[in-house]
Amino acid sequence: MLELIIRRTLNVIPICLVVFTIVFCLMRIAPGDPATAMLGDYASAEAVQSLRQEMGLDRPLWSQYLDSLRGLLHGDLGRSLSSGAPVSDQIASALPETLALAASSLAIGLLLGVPLGIVTAVRRGRPVDHAGRLFSLSGLSIPSFVLGILLMLLFAIDVPIFPAIGGGRSGDLSDQLLHLALPSLTLGLIMMAYVTRVMRTSMLNVLQEDYIRTARSKGIGELRVVLRHALPNCLVPLVSLCAINVIVLISSSVMVEIIFSRPGLGRLLISAMRQRDYVSLQSVLVVYAGIVILVNMTADLLYGVVNPRIRSR
């Protein structure tokens, strides 16, 4: 197991390097000058020039590249071009917000989706099945920002139960949870649609297997058959689905963070992009890539846990 982790990690390093180089080069091709972007239409050419110097944009590209690479290897992500604040601080404050959102959405998706998937499979062809399928089709098809807007309209504006903007006061857990409610419900419902569908399909497949028929013929109760005998065999597809969908979730979290003005990575990404803050932008992109790589690795390892046959290979 440990060997697998190490091998995987080593594999990831060249990818990270390529990712970083791609990101660095691309960011420098982008048109528009961060100094101009920062200062706006009120700035004089003098102000722009002085800011450019301060930002270090007048240095040659290769020296900027080597500096950021050296910094990255030392865990120093540099300073934001816009405000001069350390980028690692920004990421340290934004990353937990995004991870909390992703984790709570995944939890909502699994807690609601797994039972619904089982019920629709067991009651195949009944009204509950049709309703469940319609629900998953809708969930798979609705863009996260549309759902987010609808939920905000319903539960923050028309019936003001939950706050609509921000991430809550730092240090105040209940306030933060309150602020997490609508964003995680938005992504959780979408996640639930994926989970329901996968659970239903794999449960249907499993229920046709011979050993289930055998179990039934032995007179074991239906509930026990489903939970004890069928469910464990649905876990492999569920884990692979979760891996794919955590990545979808991270993607959608950008939109949800924008809608609900949550101070997460997605907002950081977008505002860094608008300000042409290359230093923050490249770090955020590298962090996103890191999350995806990590999720894929975890999923690989989880396969081994839920499916011993893979581990022995």
Binding site: I15, V19, I22, I247, V248, I250, S251, S252, V254, M255, L269, L285, Y288, A289, V292, I293
Partner: peptide, 8 residues
């Protein structure tokens, strides 16, 4: 490239 979620 696949290491990035599509929207990002």
């Amino acid at each position: 490239l696949m290491a990035f979620p599509s929207l990002i």
